[in-house]
Amino acid sequence: MTSPLQQKIKISGPSVITANRTWDGIVIWRTAAKGWSAELSDAAIVRTADEARALLAESVADDVGAIGAYIAPVELKDSGKIKPGNLREHIRSAGVTIDLPVPA
């Protein structure tokens, strides 16, 4: 399998690194403090391919903490809020778009 670091990196706007936490699988984002957070608002923002490559490299290096790290687009609102950049990432961030059979 091709490592994400060997793939050509192209970003068209502000992006974050996201993955799933190894022990429980929940969605996490890479922070500027070289850690992970379950809140998108804590995510480090990258704007160039080089920045993205560097952040992805340190994310992938944490193989024990996270699984499947990749670059995901985000939107930055005027308020400073970070919003997921597409529907898939919106669902990963906000959860399923349906009512679960058993309310949480």
Binding site: N20, D24, G25, I26, V27, I67, G68, R88, I91, R92, G95, V96
Partner: peptide, 13 residues
């Protein structure tokens, strides 16, 4: 894990 039916999906395993 796959041989034991464990996938990684969007939100969780």
């Amino acid at each position: 894990r796959l041989q034991n039916g464990v996938y990684l999906q969007l939100h969780a395993y």
